[in-house]
Design a protein around this nucleic acid. Structure first.
Length: 281
DNA sequence: TAGAGTATACGTCACCGCGA
DNA sequence: TCGCGGTGACGTATACTCTA
């Protein structure tokens, strides 16, 4: 209920958005600031945009608040513990390589050997699945995920993805992502192969931008960049919402503190009035 | 109990500010 | 100047509650 009301608030005109959510308005009133002054009069869209752009992040606002008001916690630069435990891609060790299979799946390989696979589509990393590692033999046909063989016959690491594709640790770098080959000299490189084929049929995205030639490769690179941007923005939006909730919670707590202060000051004022005023009989 | 209404969360786009 | 992160706005999905 509460959050929905705020959602609605945020969809009001921008000059209201920034000064007149319930909590913010209350704080502004109690603290007797002039933050709501901008709501008066008609503000054109350009000015609205200017106002919008001037608004600092929740982290900045809250940290400023916390410096003003003891007891208001700061928003940590790092992710909170609960977020840190979430199995999303943002928690992976870096450097991380991301591959896309011919079936559209994304395979992320972290330096520590952590492997995560996400399904294609709008879900993005929501489809991330942890890799189950075993030392058993051949991959089952059409297996969802995945088996991991510590060493295959030729001494390379293999693990098997959807559609019976195989990701193979490779000594050669020609199919490795460019950033991996360039930046991590001692990191293993990988190929995505059909398990029985000699040629790496499954490889659809292993070339560096500099080596792209065909329009198809350029399109694939553009698609990959877009997916990466969307994935990052997805995570950023989650983090932003988390900070927003924290920010609003802190405003609420500040309201409570200021209300108590206000009450005490009023009581003190009444007491002083009683003391100072001459008694009339 | 089906449908409407509500609450909450998410993904995406557009835009802006900031730092390299 | 460019790339990236932060965030408002918007649309959508899902779960829950209420009511006829």
């Amino acid at each position: 209920m509460w959050w929905h009301q705020h959602n609605l608030c945020f969809r009001r005109p921008i000059e209201e958005d920034y000064s007149s959510t319930d909590v913010e308005e209350k704080v502004a009133t109690i603290a007797e600031t002039d933050e709501s002054a901008e709501s008066e009069g008609v503000i054109d869209s350009h000015k609205r945009r200017e106002i919008l752009s001037r608004r600092p992040s929740y982290r900045k606002i809250l940290n400023e608040l916390s410096s003003d008001v003891p007891g208001v916690p700061k928003i940590e630069e790092e992710k909170s513990e609960e977020e840190g435990t979430l199995p999303n891609i943002a928690t992976m060790a870096v450097p991380t390589s991301i591959y896309q299979t011919s079936t559209g799946q994304y395979i992320a390989i972290a330096q520590g050997g952590t492997i995560q696979i996400s399904n294609p589509g709008s879900d993005g990393v929501q489809g991330l699945q942890a890799l189950t590692m075993t030392n058993s033999g051949a991959p089952p046909p059409g297996a969802t995920i995945v088996q991991y063989a510590a060493q295959s016959a030729d001494g390379t690491q293999q693990f098997f993805a959807l559609g019976s594709q195989v990701v193979v640790q490779d000594e050669e770098t020609e199919l490795a992502p460019s950033h991996m080959a360039a930046a991590t000299g001692d990191m293993p490189t990988y190929q995505i192969r059909a398990p029985t084929a000699a040629l790496p049929q499954g490889v659809v995205m292993a070339a560096s931008p500099g080596s792209l030639h065909s329009p198809q490769q350029l399109a694939e690179e553009a698609t990959r960049k877009r997916e990466l941007r969307l994935m990052k923005n997805r995570e950023a939006a989650k983090e932003c919402r988390r900070r927003k909730k924290e920010y609003v919670k802190c405003l609420e707590s500040r309201v409570a503190v200021l209300e108590v202060q206000n009450k005490k000051l009023r009581e003190e004022l009444e007491t002083l009035k009683d003391v100072c005023s001459p008694k009339t009989d």
